[in-house]
């Protein structure tokens, strides 16, 4: 009995066998898909900030202004995982700061800080991995998510980021808040994921 696998492979081989020649793998330079304005952007950090803001990600460079923004948004409950406790000290004014994230509390946490695995200047994207953000839900379920991006880990281009992907079960590039335009093409933020996406550059 031939398995589904064998059947599929034999039909694929049979389909390709009569081709007189097959299209060669195109050779292209790594920067082929870079937007032409990229060359004029010397400073990756400045470019990242510009692109992130353009796609709806707020950028902060110090914890004080980030905390002030969260307060102005009415945030009460904040999740800050253990490795970042030094930041928690700056959050004394919130009604609760916790380093525990459990499923039972998914809808109670207003804002979550998680470390990013890097960022991409060209697109203003934040990179999260399972190693950097140990709980996927924590970076996704709260209305506010603040990724901690280290300056040294900002990739200049999408191609650079692709070439440097770490071995991790899950990497996600986050380019702005969760959004939809399903209803009459009207843009609404915060469908399933964060309605307010931010990053704190350290």
């Amino acid at each position: 009995m031939s398995t589904a696998r064998e059947q599929i492979f034999s039909s694929v081989r049979a389909a390709l066998a009569p081709l007189p020649e097959r299209t060669a793998r195109p050779v292209f330079s790594k920067d082929v898909a870079e937007p032409h304005w990229l060359a004029a952007e010397a400073d990756s950090l400045a470019l990242f900030q510009k692109r992130a803001e353009a796609t709806g990600t707020k950028c902060f460079t110090d914890m004080e202004s980030c905390a002030a923004w969260l307060r102005s948004q009415g945030v009460r409950t904040v999740y800050i995982p253990a490795p970042l406790t030094r930041l928690a000290a700056l959050c004394s004014e919130f009604s609760e700061v916790t380093s525990e994230y459990t499923r039972a509390r998914v809808n109670e946490i207003d804002a979550a800080f998680t470390p990013a695995a890097g960022a991409i200047a060209e697109s203003g994207s934040i990179i999260l991995s399972d190693e950097s953000t140990p709980d996927r839900l924590a970076a996704l379920a709260p209305w506010h998510h603040i990724a901690l991006v280290s300056r040294a880990e900002i990739h200049r281009t999408i191609a650079d980021a692709l070439a440097a992907m770490p071995d991790d079960p899950n990497l996600i590039w986050v380019t702005g808040p969760s959004k939809t335009a399903d209803v009459e093409g009207i843009l609404i933020q915060g469908v399933h994921g964060p309605g307010a996406q931010a990053c704190l550059i350290l």
Partner: peptide, 16 residues
């Protein structure tokens, strides 16, 4: 019309 879609996810196997 977006440079990148908001979430671009790369899945490389189950949890470890």
């Amino acid at each position: 019309g977006q440079q990148l879609t908001v979430y671009t996810e790369f899945i490389n196997g189950p949890a470890r």
